[in-house]
């Protein structure tokens, strides 16, 4: 297999994802409602309750909306990546995974490319969210929009790989509701997305440590710092390392036969 083959395959998977996105564009925009509700309603209600002191990367006092915006970017990626990864495993209706796996190219390459292509679509959603967020006076530096891209890519790859791992190995979570309750919500709430961790430390050291070992916390911090053009090597490094580990585990352990793609096999 030559490099050109990989390239054509990569482009093909990407363009299929964008074609599908275009077909389902109403779903794409309705998915934006969730983070915008958090921003417009939840944050407005909570800004009075929570005072956020000056913490890096911010240089002044900030509104609560400003604080949670990067967390909501993380939330968009979290929901999309999980949903996408699960559909890769549970999608029996279209059999699209079977077509993908009939490619002669190595499976880890196919799976990572697929995760990346889904990630890019959800990153598109993040950017639209960030544009709308400007209406709420969330105005990170212009270059921040570019600087945040690698962090967003890593986050989507990390969460997509996690979704694949879960879908492949945890049989009990066979629908999205299960994953929502046992993975997505705990990951989201036990992170720095909605509150700075020092607040959590005041509340409970236990919860604080849970937040600290949650990779999503570090992904959100990587997004937050990059968006404000600051370099947070710890957050970025941890996200990168976790991504590498999860991606290799997920692709090495990908067992389509565990997915019951063959209905009533005998």
């Amino acid at each position: 297999m030559k490099a050109a083959h990989y390239w054509h395959c990569f482009v093909g998977i990407q363009s299929r994802e964008w074609l599908r996105f275009w077909q389902q564009r109403t779903r794409f925009f309705s998915a934006l409602v969730r983070p915008l509700l958090w921003l417009a309603v939840f944050a407005a209600g909570f800004r009075a309750v929570l005072g956020v002191s000056i913490i890096p990367p911010y240089q002044t006092y900030i509104t609560y909306e400003t604080y949670i915006a990067p967390g909501l970017c993380g939330m968009i990626v979290l929901f999309n990546s999980m949903q996408g990864a699960l559909s890769m495993v549970y999608d029996r209706e279209l059999g699209s995974m079977r077509v993908l796996l009939m490619s002669p190219l190595p499976r880890p390459f196919l799976l990572i490319t697929k995760l990346l292509s889904m990630g890019l679509v959800s990153i598109g959603q993040v950017y639209i969210f960030l544009l709308v967020a400007r209406l709420f006076d969330i105005e990170p530096p212009t270059l921040g929009y570019l600087a945040v891209l690698p962090a967003l890519m890593l986050t989507s790859l990390m969460l997509g790989a996690l979704g694949l791992l879960i879908a492949t190995w945890v049989k009990q979570l066979e629908n999205f509701a299960g994953v929502m309750n046992f993975v997505i919500f705990p990951m989201f709430f036990l992170s720095s997305a909605l509150y700075p961790l020092w607040k959590m430390q005041e509340a409970s050291p236990w919860l604080y440590w849970l937040c600290q070992i949650n990779p999503f916390t570090h992904a959100v911090e990587a997004i937050r710092f990059a968006l404000y053009l600051q370099w947070n090597p710890a957050a970025f490094g941890i996200t990168l390392a976790v991504t590498l580990v999860l991606a290799s585990l997920a692709t090495a352990g990908f067992r389509p036969q565990r997915t019951k793609i063959l209905p009533g096999v005998a």
Partner: peptide
């Protein structure tokens, strides 16, 4: 075209 791409064929 998607299938062809999966097999590494140029556009």
């Amino acid at each position: 075209l998607y299938h062809a791409a999966l097999h590494g064929l140029s556009r």
